[in-house]
Simulated assay, not measured.
Amino acid sequence: MTQENTKFPIYYALPLVIVMGIVLLGGWKMFFDSGNDTLPSTREGGVAPSVVRLSAFDGAEGFTHDDLKSAGVKLVNFWASWCAPCRAEHPQLQTLADEGVVINGINYKDDPVNARRFLEELGDPFAKLMADTEGRTGLEWGLYGLPETFIIAADGTVVKRFAGPITESILESVIRPAIDDAASR
């Protein structure tokens, strides 16, 4: 009787080694890569998309595509009452509005009663306000989620798109520099 070779062939472990390598590379990229982590935007550098598919927002003055090409810097902010990050960023929008920054709001796929209640509770930072009830305008703008804010120069060029809630640190490190950039154009 012969005894079989009980050594483990290396090719049995090869799939496990490959999977572990992929996991380690992914983890390295996720935790240690200090590269640009912002979502890309095809809108930056181009003219702000149309807003013709928007509906009137209950009792608010609406805006047009021509308003986005008028003098001065303006922001377009997509938001909804059901969006918790929108609630978190609201104080920063109010700060900008109090400083005289023109913010055009687009209420996205929201119940009008809830949206109005949200603004009554937290304040209304929007100079003009429209509703994207079907989400079509959000698609045209390349929306990833809510909230999203676009900084637009006087000629209607999108200078910056920021996806996510504007925190105090984002306000200082991203939004204000983009507003300054838009104002210098």
Rank of each mutant, 00 (worst) to 15 (best):
Y11V: 02
Y11G: 03
Y11T: 00
Y12I: 07
Y12E: 06
L14F: 04
P15K: 00
L16Y: 05
I22M: 14
L24H: 05
L25G: 15
L25V: 14
K29P: 00
M30Q: 01
M30A: 13
F32H: 06
D33I: 06
S34I: 11
S34R: 14
G35I: 13
G35H: 10
G35D: 06
T38L: 15
L39G: 01
T42P: 05
R43H: 10
G46L: 15
V47L: 04
S50R: 03
S50N: 14
S50H: 03
R53F: 00
A56Y: 08
A56K: 14
F57T: 05
D58E: 11
D58V: 08
D58I: 11
G59V: 09
A60G: 07
A60E: 07
G62R: 09
F63Q: 01
T64S: 14
H65L: 11
H65P: 04
H65N: 09
D67W: 03
A71E: 12
A71M: 02
V73W: 00
V73G: 02
V76F: 12
V76H: 10
F78Y: 07
F78V: 13
W79R: 12
A80D: 08
A80T: 01
S81K: 13
W82L: 10
C83M: 03
C83D: 03
P85M: 08
C86Q: 03
A88H: 06
E89I: 14
E89D: 06
H90D: 09
H90E: 04
P91T: 05
T95P: 04
L96M: 15
L96V: 13
L96P: 11
V101A: 14
V101K: 12
I103Y: 15
I106N: 06
Y108M: 04
D111L: 04
D111V: 12
R117E: 09
F118Y: 13
D124G: 07
P125S: 03
A127P: 02
M130Y: 00
M130N: 04
A131Q: 07
T133S: 13
G135E: 03
G135H: 02
R136K: 13
T137L: 01
L139Q: 09
E140F: 08
W141P: 10
G142M: 06
L143V: 09
Y144Q: 04
G145H: 07
L146S: 05
L146M: 14
E148C: 14
